[in-house]
Design a protein around this nucleic acid. Structure first.
Length: 574
RNA sequence: CGGGGCGUAGCGUAGUGGCUAGCGCGCCUGCUUUGGGAGCAGGAGAUCGGGAGUUCGAAUCUCCCCGCCCCGACCA
C-alpha cells in the first residue's frame, strides 16, 4: 500500500515555468518526473510505478506473441557501427565517448547492429528461423532540439524488436505478427492511435508504418481519409493526378512580365493581360535546390511550397537538402532568378524533378528563362520533360485521398510506434547468413519494430488528462484505488487503512492518503492531480457507515456502505 | 545550427544603478482548525547561473561563458 504519509512525493501547486505541454506540466506537478537537463529526466516513485506498468503491458504482449526478451548494454563499442557505416552516418545525434585507452564507444541510439551480431553468433541454419527478439532498454540520442518534456528526450526508454527470416514471405509474416502485437499493446494501453503509411527513410528497407497517437501537441503531421480510412504520414502521402490531353493547347507564348517577383503579382498580371481565370495553381514554380551539393530543380504548382522533408524522403539517399543561395545562382549564370522555366534546364545539366501534380500533358505558366519574361501554354511532355516524378509539394487538408479521392483531413500526432521491413541491409553489412535447405548460404532478411516506452507514458497523459490533473487507465495508474482519509478521528484513519488492506487482499492496488496534517481540500486536489481511476473518501459519511466512491474520469460519485465497498469498487474496475 | 525569450530560496515570482533582495506556495515550531489547496504567531532557507569589467556603489550597465524554454532546420 502506498501511504502518502511516507511516500517520497511532493506535488506542486504551480506549473513549472519550463513546461509547455500538458503531459510535462502535470507529470512534474504530480511528482512523477523531474528535469535533470534538457531532454533528460529522473523518475520519482509514482513515475517509476507508472512506467513499469506500461513496460509490463508491452512485455506481456511481446511475450504472448512469442517474441523473446534479451538485453543489451547501452554502452557499445564502435566496431559494429563502423561496419554498417552508422558511426558516421548517424552524425551529431550519436553520443560518442572514449574509454581510458582512447577506444571509441557510443551510447546506443538503436540496436540493429547488436541484434544482428547476436543472432549471427548463435544461429546458422534456416531451421532456426523465424526468430523475433526484443529488449526494453534505455536509448541515447543527442537530439538537436529535445522538446515537449519527455515526449522527445535525449535519454529515453524504448522497446525494440527485430525479426529474422529466410525470405521475404517470412518477413511479411513476422511484420504482420508485430503489427498485430502492437495493436493489442496500444489497445491495452488505452490509447487512441492511427496506423499510417510511412517512408522508410534512413533506415532503408521497403515497407514501414507508424503508430500515431492523435494529439494537438504532437510533432508528426499525417493525413487521414474520413471516407475510406486511408492514413499516411505527410511524407508518405501519394498524389494521383491523371495525364491530360494537350492536343488543343496552343504553342508556347512568351510575354513581358516585369515586376512580378512573386506568384501573386504574376497572377495579377496574367488576369489583366489575358482576361482573368488564372490562379496560382496555373503557374509552375521552379525551385532550385542543392542536394548533397548537386543542383537539382523541382517543379511544383505555384500555389504550393516545396516540402523539403517530403521531397528528401521520397527522393531517397540524400543527406543534405537545402534551398539555393545567391552563391549557388552565381555558379549557374544561365538561370535567371525569378524567371526560371523547365524548358532549358537540360542545357544547364540540371536534373529536373516534378511533383506528380505536374501531370504529363498539363499546361503551365512559367518563367521564360529571360529577365522580366514569362511564358504560357508550356506543356509537360511537349515543351519540357521532367527527369523523374517525385512527391515534393506540401500536402494540404482537402487534397484528394489516393484510394478514393475524398478530401483528406490533416492532424497532428505523437509517434508511439514504428515498424519497418528492413530487408537485408544490416544482415548483408554484418554478414548474417544461414544455410538453406539446399545447404546454400542465404542472407537473412530482417524487420525492426520500436515502441517509445517513456514517450507512451507522456502520450497517454496527453490523451487522458483533464483540467484538474492526470487520469490514467486502471492498468497503468500508480494504484487502482486512491483512498482519502478526510477527517481527524483515529477511527476514520483505521477504517481507511482497513479498507485498503481488504482491497489489496483482492489484488487491487491501493494508495492511501493517511496524512494527519493535510486538510481534506489538499487531499482531494492531490488525488485528482495524481490521477488514479477510483477515489474513495472515508470521511463524514462514515457516521452512517458509508464511504464515498468516485470515478476520477467521469466525476461520478456515490455513497456505498463500508461493508459493500470492496464489491462496489471491484465492480467499477471491471 | 539560425531566430526569439529567459536564468533571483525546493516551486512560482517582484525588484531597470542606491538602505539589510521583497512576496506567495512549500518547509520547521507553537496554538487553533479538518469535506475542496484553512487561520494566527514565530522561524529556517538566496554565493541573484558563472567569470571579467565599468562605477563611490551592480540582481540591475558592458563583454565573455554556461544553462533552460519556444519556433525553424534536424529527428531509427
Amino acid at each position: 500500500m502506498l501511504k502518502m504519509s511516507t511516500l517520497f512525493l511532493r506535488t506542486l501547486r504551480d506549473d513549472p515555468a519550463d513546461a509547455e505541454v500538458a503531459s510535462h506540466k502535470l507529470l512534474v506537478r504530480a511528482g512523477y518526473v523531474r528535469r535533470i537537463a534538457a531532454g533528460i529526466y529522473s523518475w520519482l516513485p509514482l513515475g517509476v510505478i507508472t512506467l513499469r506498468n506500461v513496460e509490463r503491458v508491452i512485455r506481456e504482449e511481446m511475450d504472448n506473441a512469442g517474441f523473446q526478451e534479451v538485453n543489451f548494454p547501452a554502452l557499445l563499442p564502435r566496431e559494429a557501427y563502423e561496419t554498417t557505416n552508422r558511426w558516421e552516418e548517424y552524425g551529431p545525434s550519436l553520443f560518442r565517448l572514449q574509454d581510458r585507452k582512447g577506444g571509441d564507444y557510443l551510447l546506443g541510439p538503436t540496436h540493429e547492429e547488436m541484434f544482428t551480431l547476436m543472432v549471427k553468433g548463435e544461429y546458422s541454419s534456416y531451421k532456426d528461423l523465424p526468430l523475433s527478439i526484443y529488449q526494453i532498454q534505455t536509448k541515447f540520442r543527442d537530439e538537436a532540439r529535445p522538446r515537449s518534456g519527455i515526449i522527445r528526450g535525449r535519454e529515453f526508454v524504448m522497446k525494440d524488436s527485430y525479426s529474422f527470416d529466410l525470405d521475404d514471405a517470412g518477413l511479411e509474416v513476422s511484420y504482420q505478427n508485430h503489427r498485430d502485437a502492437y495493436v493489442k499493446t496500444f489497445d491495452r494501453l488505452g490509447m487512441k492511435y492511427n496506423i499510417v503509411k510511412a517512408v522508410s527513410g534512413a533506415m532503408g528497407g521497403s515497407k514501414s508504418e507508424e503508430f500515431l497517437a492523435p494529439c494537438s501537441t504532437g510533432e508528426d503531421t499525417y493525413v487521414l481519409c474520413p471516407q475510406c480510412g486511408f492514413a499516411a504520414n505527410v511524407e508518405a502521402m501519394v498524389t494521383k493526378v491523371d495525364a491530360q490531353d494537350s492536343s488543343k493547347v496552343p504553342a508556347v507564348e512568351a510575354f513581358d512580365s516585369p515586376n512580378t517577383p512573386t506568384i501573386d503579382t504574376l497572377v495579377e498580371l496574367l488576369n489583366s493581360k489575358f482576361g482573368g481565370g488564372y490562379t496560382g495553381a496555373h503557374t509552375l514554380k521552379n525551385v532550385m535546390l542543392m542536394a548533397d551539393n548537386k543542383a537539382v530543380c523541382v517543379l511544383v504548382p505555384g500555389d504550393r511550397e516545396v516540402d523539403l522533408k517530403r521531397f528528401q524522403e521520397n527522393l531517397g539517399g540524400i543527406h543534405e537538402l537545402r534551398v539555393f543561395e545567391d552563391a549557388d545562382f552565381a555558379k549557374f549564370p544561365a538561370l535567371v532568378k525569378g524567371y526560371i522555366g523547365p524548358q532549358d534546364a537540360k542545357k544547364s545539366g540540371i536534373t529536373v524533378y516534378a511533383d506528380p501534380r505536374i501531370a504529363p500533358g498539363s499546361s503551365w505558366v512559367t518563367g521564360a528563362n529571360q529577365k522580366d519574361r514569362h511564358a504560357r501554354n508550356v506543356v509537360n511532355g511537349r515543351d519540357f520533360t521532367p527527369d523523374a516524378y517525385v512527391e515534393a509539394a506540401e500536402v494540404r487538408a482537402g487534397d484528394a485521398c489516393p484510394e478514393c479521392a475524398t478530401p483528406v483531413v490533416i492532424d497532428r500526432a505523437i509517434e508511439i510506434g514504428h515498424i519497418f521491413q528492413l530487408g537485408r541491409k544490416y544482415a548483408e553489412a554484418l554478414n548474417l547468413t544461414v544455410l538453406d535447405h539446399n545447404g546454400k548460404s542465404q542472407i537473412v532478411t530482417m524487420g525492426s519494430y520500436g515502441i517509445g516506452v517513456t514517450r507512451a507514458v507522456a502520450a497517454i497523459a496527453e490523451q487522458t488528462h483533464d483540467e484538474i490533473g492526470l487520469n490514467w487507465p486502471a492498468e497503468l495508474a500508480p494504484a487502482k484505488v486512491h483512498i482519502v482519509a478526510a477527517g481527524k478521528d483515529d477511527l476514520l484513519f483505521e477504517t481507511a487503512f482497513k479498507l485498503g488492506t481488504d482491497l489489496e487482499a483482492q489484488g487491487i492496488s491501493v494508495m492511501l492518503d493517511d496524512r494527519r496534517d493535510a486538510s481534506p481540500g489538499v487531499k482531494f486536489k492531490d488525488a485528482e492531480l495524481i490521477g488514479n481511476p477510483i477515489i474513495v473518501v472515508v470521511g463524514k459519511a462514515l457516521a452512517e457507515g458509508n464511504v464515498e466512491v468516485r470515478v476520477r474520469k467521469s466525476g461520478e460519485k456515490k455513497e456505498v456502505a463500508l461493508s459493500s465497498a470492496v464489491a462496489a469498487i471491484t465492480d467499477l474496475l471491471k
